[in-house]
Simulated assay, not measured.
Amino acid sequence: MAHQKVLLTGPTGFIGKRLLYQLDERGYQVRCLVRAGETLDLNLPLRQEPEIVYADLLDPDSLPTALDGMDTAYYLVHSMGGRSIRQTRAFVEKDRTVARNFREAADRAGLSRIIYLGGLGDAGDRLSHHLASRHEVARILQAGKVKTTVLRAAVIIGAGGASFEIIRYLVERLPVLLGPRWVYTKSQPIAVENVLAYLCGCLETPETAGRTFDIGGPQILSYADLMGMYARVRGLSRTIIGVPLVPIRLSAYWVHFITPVPVGVVLPLAEGLRNRAICRENSIRDLIPIHLTPMETAICNALAEETEGPGKLLSQQACFLPGDLA
């Protein structure tokens, strides 16, 4: 299967850059679609240099060259948000446009597969603008001729990801944490390494073509649970006080004030946590059997990567896993 030619969109992002290394490790020929003006900075050398093509998904005329000769495409393009709340709202229409442009270009190019990482949540649950947009992108891609696999994930825990960085900065900096209502909503977080295993597994498992799968880790937890877990594995004493009446927008500005995560990213994440995000089905576990990483270990893996740099093996010197606690 490694002879397949794979187009990777979003190769500079949190998931995309990691996926590039995974695909390279498995021997795939990867072409990275990069926007003009962006640079693909690689922290570690690859076995083979990826082909880089510059294109703009808002410009349909730039896409045929990017897709020419490709077998499968990973669609990792979505707008978590902008620097500001106003930018976040504007990105919904942009996501819709680029998804349509990509679907039409993929149909014309005759791709065999598209694999898309979307968001977990049911349409009947009054979804946030962000999650509703992720679902709409999935529908747009699956409406084309190319068989599109959709993976739906909730909170993804890994170094550099918005969810983990919010938790890390809040817990490291504040001995007393104020918990608005959204931090107590239950979800099924998943380690970034498990997301990558599923993304690669879909490429190598033809039975996943054209289907939608929920993906999640082995535990159902809230953001408050994750913050408490982070404190424990770091050996920190922290208190979380619930403040359920604080509006979501105000809490987003508060998180932005404490962390480097832009308010335009915090707000859609917080709004998305109005609803429980738990896997309704687990059929992917039979098709792609992997070991699901417990969140304690996922947090330690992320801490080790923050300390030592991407790609380094786990060092638990900075972590106290539950079994090690007195």
Rank of each mutant, 00 (worst) to 15 (best):
I140R: 05
S62P: 14
R234F: 09
K94G: 10
S163T: 06
G179I: 01
Q142N: 09
D41V: 15
L178C: 12
S62E: 05
L174T: 09
L57G: 05
G228S: 14
A162W: 09
N275S: 15
P244K: 14
S84I: 06
G228H: 14
S163G: 08
I215G: 01
G119F: 03
I284N: 03
I157R: 02
F91Y: 14
L314P: 00
D107L: 06
Q22W: 03
Q48V: 09
L196P: 05
F257G: 14
L325V: 15
P294A: 10
V171K: 00
H78G: 09
M70T: 14
W182E: 01
T88G: 06
I15K: 05
L151C: 05
I278P: 11
E25K: 14
K186H: 12
V146I: 12
L170A: 03
V233F: 02
I85F: 09
L111N: 01
T297V: 15
A162D: 04
P247T: 02
V246E: 04
V195K: 02
G121N: 02
D59A: 06
D56W: 04
G27E: 00
P289R: 06
C319I: 11
T185M: 06
C200G: 11
V266F: 01
Y230R: 03
L33C: 05
L245F: 15
P310C: 10
V155G: 02
R113A: 05
D125P: 03
G161T: 08
I115H: 06
T148D: 04
P64Y: 11
I284Y: 00
R211P: 00
E306C: 13
A132P: 15
V30Y: 00
T293W: 02
P50M: 07
I278T: 10
E296V: 11
T65I: 13
T88F: 11
V255T: 12
G144P: 09
K145E: 12
E49Y: 10
P322Y: 12
L33F: 02
R47H: 15
G323P: 01
R103F: 04
Y54M: 12
F91E: 01
G119A: 13
Y230C: 10
M1W: 08
Y253T: 09
V261H: 00
I299P: 00
G10I: 00
G27M: 02
A277F: 06
P244F: 12
L203H: 03
G179M: 05
P244R: 13
I240M: 07
V171T: 11
S133H: 03
D24G: 08
G216Y: 01
E93V: 15
R113E: 02
L131T: 10
V137P: 10
L58A: 14
L303G: 02
K147M: 12
S187I: 11
L177R: 05
S163I: 06
A154Y: 05
I288A: 07
C279G: 07
R285P: 13
E207Y: 01
P294H: 08
D122I: 15
S283Y: 07
G158L: 01
P247V: 03
T39P: 00
R234P: 04
R181E: 06
P189Q: 06
A162F: 11
Q142D: 10
F14V: 08
V34R: 04
Q317W: 10
I284F: 07
K147F: 08
G118P: 09
A36T: 15
F257R: 13
L287W: 04
L58W: 10
Q4H: 14
I241Q: 13
F91R: 04
R83V: 15
G13F: 03
